[in-house]
Amino acid sequence: MDVEIRQAGESDREALVRLLDEAFMDDPVSSWVFPDREHRRRVHGTFLGVFLDVALREGRVDVTEDGSAAALWLQVPAGPPEEDDTPVRMRETADPDNERAELSGRLTGEVHPHDRAHEYLLLIAVSPERQGEGLGTALIEPVLERCDRDGVPAYLEASSARSSKLYERLGFAFTGRTVDLPDGPHMWPMWREPLA
C-alpha cells in the first residue's frame, strides 16, 4: 500500500486531537475510563490530547498525508524510569474527579519494561471510516524496519484482543501479564524483538 507519511508538528495538534477522539471513542479502555458516553464526548479529546502533547514534545508523531491515521511514538531509554506525572496530568487536565483517568496510566506504567531501550508505540489511531485499509500497518512498518536495522526492540499495549492479533502479525508477542483495569477490560502489553 502506497501511503504518504509525514512527521506531525504542533500546527497539526487540533486535527490530531479530533482524530484520536474519533478513533478511540468506543475503545474498551476509553469506555472504561469514561463510562458515560455523553461525558466521554465532552472530555475524551482533552484526555487524549495529553498523550499527544507528550509525543509531540518528547517523541514523534507520524501522520498520513490526508490526516486519516497517526502513530505516537516515544523512545524509552534503558534504566529506572524517571518520575512520570503524565497520569496525574491526564486526570487534572481532562476530568479531575475521575480517578480512572489517572489509574489507567499508572497501571500501564507499572508493567512497562525498562531493562532495555526501546521504541514505544503510545497510541495509533485510524479514522473509523478508514479502518481495515492497512493504514495502521503502513504507519508502523517504517519504524519497525528502523528498529530491525538498528537492533532496537519495540513495545506497546494493545487495548483489545482483536488489536493484539493485528500486532502479532507485525512480530509483537504478548509479554504474559495483562493490565487488568478494575471491573474493566484487559490490556495486552506486547514486545517485539528486532529481526536480524
Rank of each mutant, 00 (worst) to 15 (best):
A94C: 07
E110F: 09
E145W: 00
L16T: 07
V143G: 00
G134P: 08
V54R: 14
S127E: 11
W191H: 13
G45W: 04
R149M: 00
E145K: 11
L52Y: 07
F47M: 00
E157K: 08
S163G: 02
E14S: 13
P113K: 11
C147Q: 00
V33D: 07
Y155H: 14
T86F: 05
I5R: 01
D21E: 14
R149F: 02
T93W: 02
F47K: 00
P128Y: 04
R130G: 02
E10D: 08
L16E: 03
W191G: 12
S160C: 04
R91S: 11
R192I: 13
G105N: 06
D2L: 11
R89L: 09
A71K: 00
P185A: 10
G105K: 05
T175Y: 07
L107A: 08
M190T: 10
V126G: 02
R57I: 02
V50D: 02
R177T: 15
D27M: 08
R6E: 12
S30T: 13
Y167F: 14
R41D: 07
I140N: 00
R18M: 00
A70Q: 05
A8C: 06
L72S: 02
L144C: 02
G59V: 09
V50C: 05
R89G: 02
D21M: 03
F34G: 05
E83T: 11
R91V: 11
D2R: 12
D26F: 09
S163I: 12
V50L: 04
P185H: 09
V63H: 09
L107G: 10
V88Q: 10
E110D: 14
V54T: 10
L123D: 07
T46C: 05
R13P: 02
E65R: 15
Q75G: 14
Q131S: 01
R40A: 10
E92T: 13
V152Y: 06
L52R: 03
T175W: 06
G136A: 11
C147N: 01
P28M: 10
P128M: 04
P189A: 09
T175D: 14
L135S: 05
R177A: 14
R37M: 11
T178V: 14
E82Y: 00
S160Q: 01
V50G: 06
R60P: 06
E133A: 15
G171D: 05
L122F: 12
G132V: 04
F51C: 05
G171F: 06
W191Y: 15
M1H: 14
M25Q: 12
E92M: 12
M90K: 04
R146F: 06
E141Q: 12
A138Y: 04
A70Y: 07
R177N: 10
Y120N: 14
D12A: 03
P153T: 03
L121G: 09
R18G: 11
E145N: 04
R91T: 10
R146I: 03
D85I: 08
V143H: 02
R130P: 01
R149K: 04
D150R: 13
V179Q: 09
L72I: 05
V152W: 11
